[in-house]
Design a protein around this nucleic acid. Structure first.
Length: 291
DNA sequence: CGCCCGACCTGAGAGC
DNA sequence: TGCTCTCAGGTCGGGC
């Protein structure tokens, strides 16, 4: 589900609401995600303050006093911040409230984990398909983790530029779309934005990566930065079920040029948008605009 | 090493 | 109503 713009939107909204809060209680209802949630997670987190929120590719990183909480939303995950379902007592009863607040998940089947914070609110991790990741590591700099170490540059930094991408594509004969989705080449692009970026660049998704001209590579870099920035401005894309930390959908879906629009008219030439399968994923493009 | 495919898991929606 | 089939925004590991 979530690609870079959705995770970045999540980071921005959570920065306004949970930064500086302290974790009072942890409840794990189901631990079997991509890798099992460690049962020591509770004791490790309780009492720690949320010092900063960062993002690397599609990973959300919560910096705590003594380490980092690494969160990946997989295909269907969401992280929502809400007022505790119970415990509407006065602040003087804060301790009791935090005990009461652990009750009543809104979605008992998929609210797998809940962090109760010191202001009576809670952060809930929900993930029907359980492809996500939720783990605590006792290191300041999570970039040393194996998952993060292999990631390519952040697409919105200067490190991701025409020369860099040209060097990466030179020897690769896979389709350009698949290479853009390779997290080692550039971090954070997934199935929706890969199609959108290639539309913006006027490059057909099936083109072998090495066959792109320097000019085309420049347009791919430019399209990446433009599309991602606009999507972040709109709070991300809700195509099926992505929700931000307030449980609201992103507003970028209506700005998608080709994704999910097979048979509709191309916004540029009014030709018919086509859907093909590439690397077992649906891929959308305009046969006339994308060469 | 790079490429391609299936596996992981569950829910929603279409079609019968 | 209920069954079956397909598809879904990601990542990993195995085979070639």
């Amino acid at each position: 589900m979530p690609e870079l713009p959705e995770v970045e939107s999540l980071r921005l909204t959570l920065s306004c609401t949970v930064l500086g809060k302290t974790i009072r209680a942890v409840e794990i209802r189901r631990s079997s995600l991509r890798e099992p949630i460690a049962c020591e997670l509770s004791t490790a987190l309780v009492g720690q303050q949320i010092k900063a929120l960062a993002r690397r590719g599609k990973y959300l990183l919560l910096r705590l006093d003594k380490g980092t909480l690494v969160i990946h939303l997989g295909m269907s995950g969401s992280l929502t911040h809400r007022v505790a379902a119970r415990g509407e007592n006065s602040l003087a009863c804060g301790e009791r409230r935090s005990e009461l607040a652990t009750a009543l998940p809104l979605d008992p089947k998929h609210d797998h984990l809940q962090l109760s914070l010191n202001d009576g609110t809670e952060l809930v991790y929900n993930d029907p398909r359980r492809f996500g990741l939720f783990k605590f590591v006792e290191v300041e700099d999570a970039n040393s983790l194996p998952e993060l170490k292999v990631l390519g540059p952040e697409p919105l930094t200067d490190e991701f530029n025409q020369a860099y991408l040209a060097a990466k594509l030179r020897r690769r004969k896979a389709a350009i779309k698949n290479v853009l989705m390779d997290q080692r080449v550039v971090a954070g692009l997934g199935n929706i934005y890969a199609s959108e970026i290639l539309f913006h660049a006027g490059v057909r998704p099936t083109r072998k990566a090495f066959s792109l001209t320097l000019r085309e590579i420049g347009r791919v870099v430019d399209g990446t930065k433009t599309v991602l920035a606009r999507a972040i401005d709109a709070g991300g894309t809700t195509f099926r079920n992505y929700l931000d930390s307030r449980g609201r959908p992103g507003r970028f879906a209506s700005s998608l040029s080709v994704y999910g629009r097979a048979g509709e008219s191309c916004p540029r030439c009014l030709g018919k948008i086509r859907c093909i399968v590439l690397g077992q994923r649906s891929t959308f493009y305009c046969p006339r605009c994308q060469k």
